[in-house]
Design a binder for these strands. Structure first.
Length: 595
RNA sequence: GGGCCUGUAGCUUAAUUGAAUAAAGCAUCUGACUACGGAUCAGAAGAUUCAGGGUUUGAAUCCCUGCAGGCUCACCA
């Protein structure tokens, strides 16, 4: 049975019978812990149609539900709040239907299809903490949509061309001495990143030198020899110069190799990769088409602009006067290509930091101007930056937290703490390694996902490595502990038949409260999808684990003398473990059998 | 300067489609394993929800003003 629907329908019946009225939106909320009951009907809005004061209205509705509904066992009224106590028989029935449904919480597919873009790094340096938030967020949102019955395509756009990679190439050419990942033992993305840093160092010193010679700063930036080399490489690349293309391919190849091991450890994946070098030309064509049909303006110097002043924005350049494309140009091409590749998608989500909100606002308007009706199906999943206790991450000041380093640290710390607790002495090194990976990454992912995406967040390394409290490992631990109970039940030969459950006629408070949470799982995954917010799931999983732990501490399972109750508690524990696992998987977090 | 976002216990966060005495974690203090896993649980203490006005039966939530912080407004990506 579906408790929410039944309850609503009973209340509607009550309102019709009592006041001959209907109320469109019933306000039902969880009952505060200090009062008895689980569901609370807020009666202030209903008072308007009942023509009675809220308290009186609440009493009438409560009394009607008590005598007519068969769901409500008792009620109490506090001010205008009607607190409803659902009978234990109904709770048991709700549980039975969840327990017997192996697909509980999996929403039926209605042929909806969505594309989620995330990650999308530049290829000149390794991934950092900010990318971790991006990747975990995008991956999780994709999983949440899957959980809502959507067909999901995970993609990314790789910014593989442009001045940034040319900078690394220039520095490597000057100082690299043919160093490769193989020759140096350095991971490919880190090696390329090293030369990007090298470029910046040399560039700065060259500027300084020029300035002491009396060159203006702005001119010095252009005249610096290493910058001229990088710009020269960019031009040669666009002219398809063979040597330049070769070097570009080689260095990008190193980066991809490095990224792929980073992605693997993160546990994220992609169905299809788009490369800027393959989409910017389509973007260019589209922009020129826009000029022909009057959507865009070509100025005298040859540059192409879109005028968005009627939308409250500015004019934006789409092609430079020399005909080369800008960032926006390739995003136009990429979007169009994606809707050609996947013509059935209803929605496209871009997981990109909030510093690009303006960019995406403009992009979507441009796509609409080009006549693509799907333009308003594009959504920018904007998230806040990750700050450190010392302030913003700044690559120039060397305060960037590297993704590979951070994951390694988290896993090491997890292993250290696991070994200290000494619960896994019979595990092989291999098993301990897998477990540490699960716990370390679980802690990191949960830490980054529990905060509302749109908010800026603080990453405190000391706090993130905590495995107690409001953390991923806390939830993983709860799961492992339930699994221990289930193993014991198996070893005792306790078998739960569906029919056994209905013999239970009374529940403990902690059981009712956990049941309330399990019952709200489907609502939560819908809410998480509507809001594009894994934080909804993270906090749900935490609440459920916490609630179960309270149950666990206060109520005996194997010492219960009533065999039916014992079986109920085993079954109940199993459902909690399953629900925790499903929720955590939506976050990209695995849960262990033991830890 | 224009636009967008944020401001909640010492710290990190919930609650933001308006609803009851604002909910957790960390840190601090006090308790709980001869019972099913103490990475747990129970309890104490901790809040003028940035400030001031307004709307409402009811405001952390909506509106206005101010303050503080962030992002953005490139022929950069």
């Amino acid at each position: 049975m579906n408790l929410d629907i039944s309850l609503r329908s009973e209340i509607h019946k009550a309102l019709a019978a009592l006041f001959n009225q209907s109320v469109e939106q019933l306000q039902i909320q969880p009952t505060n812990k200090e009062f008895e009951g689980s569901h609370t009907l807020v009666c202030f809005p209903i008072a308007k149609v009942s023509k009675k004061v809220p308290e009186e209205t609440a009493k009438l509705v409560g009394e009607y539900l008590l005598t007519h509904s068969g769901i409500v066992g008792s009620y109490n009224v506090v001010k205008g709040f009607l607190n409803l106590v659902i009978t234990d028989q109904v709770w048991v029935e709700v549980f039975r239907s969840i327990y017997s449904n192996p697909n509980f919480g999996v929403l039926a597919s209605d042929d909806k299809e969505i594309m989620v873009e995330y990650s999308s790094p530049n290829t000149n340096k390794p991934l950092h903490l900010g990318h971790l938030r991006n990747n975990f967020l995008g991956f999780s949102v994709a999983e949440i949509y899957k959980g809502n019955g959507y067909k999901v395509h995970k993609v990314q756009i790789i910014n593989d061309r442009g001045i940034h990679i040319c900078k690394s190439m220039a520095a490597w050419k000057l100082f690299g001495n043919s160093e490769t990942p193989l020759s140096s033992g350095v991971k490919g993305d880190h090696l390329v990143g090293k030369y990007y840093v090298e470029f910046d160092k040399v560039f700065k010193s060259q500027i300084k030198e020029l300035i002491t010679k009396g060159v203006a700063e702005k001119d010095a930036e252009k005249q610096a020899p290493i910058m001229q080399l990088a710009v020269d490489m960019l031009l040669k690349w666009e002219a398809k110069d063979a040597d330049t293309i070769q070097l570009w391919k080689t260095m990008n190849g190193w980066v991809y190799e490095g990224f792929s091991s980073t992605y693997k450890r993160m546990g994220v994946d992609f169905e299809k990769l788009y490369y800027e070098s393959e989409t910017y030309l389509l973007g260019k064509e589209e922009v020129l088409r826009g000029v022909e049909n009057g959507a865009f303006i070509k100025k005298e110097d040859g540059s192409v602009w879109v005028d968005l002043t009627s939308d409250g924005l500015d004019q934006k350049v789409l092609l430079r006067s020399d005909g080369t494309s800008v960032y926006m140009t390739q995003d136009i091409g990429t979007a169009i290509l994606r809707f050609r590749d996947f013509p059935n998608i209803n929605k496209q989500v871009y997981t990109v930091g909030n510093e690009q909100e303006y960019h995406f606002k403009v992009l979507f308007l441009i796509l609409a101007k080009l006549g693509y009706s799907w333009a308003n199906e594009c959504y920018h999943l904007s998230y806040g930056m990750v700050d450190l206790p010392t302030g913003k991450m700044k690559s120039r000041e060397g305060t960037v937290v590297d993704a590979d380093d951070l994951m390694a640290e988290m896993v090491n710390e997890a292993e250290k703490q696991t070994r200290e607790l000494g619960k896994i002495e019979d595990m092989s090194d291999e098993e301990i390694k897998d477990l540490s990976e699960m716990v370390g990454l679980g802690a990191l992912k949960f830490f980054l996902l529990k905060v509302d995406p749109k908010k800026r967040m603080m990453f405190d390394p000391a706090e993130s490595i905590q495995l107690q409290g409001h953390t991923g490992p806390f939830i993983q631990y709860t799961h492992a502990r339930i699994k221990a109970i289930l193993r014991k039940a198996d070893s005792l030969g306790i078998l739960v038949e569906e029919g056994d459950l209905q013999k239970v006629t009374s529940l403990e408070l902690a059981e009712r409260e956990a049941l309330f949470l399990i019952n709200s799982y489907t609502n939560k995954i819908q809410e998480a999808a509507n809001e594009y917010s894994p934080a909804v799931i993270a906090n749900y999983a935490y609440d459920l684990a916490k609630e179960y732990n309270q149950f666990y501490q206060s109520i005996p399972i194997f010492n219960e003398s009533d065999a039916d109750k014992l079986k109920f508690r085993i079954a109940f524990s199993r459902v909690v473990a399953d629900t925790i696992k499903k929720s955590m998987n939506l976050l990209g977090i695995q849960v262990p059998e033991r830890m």
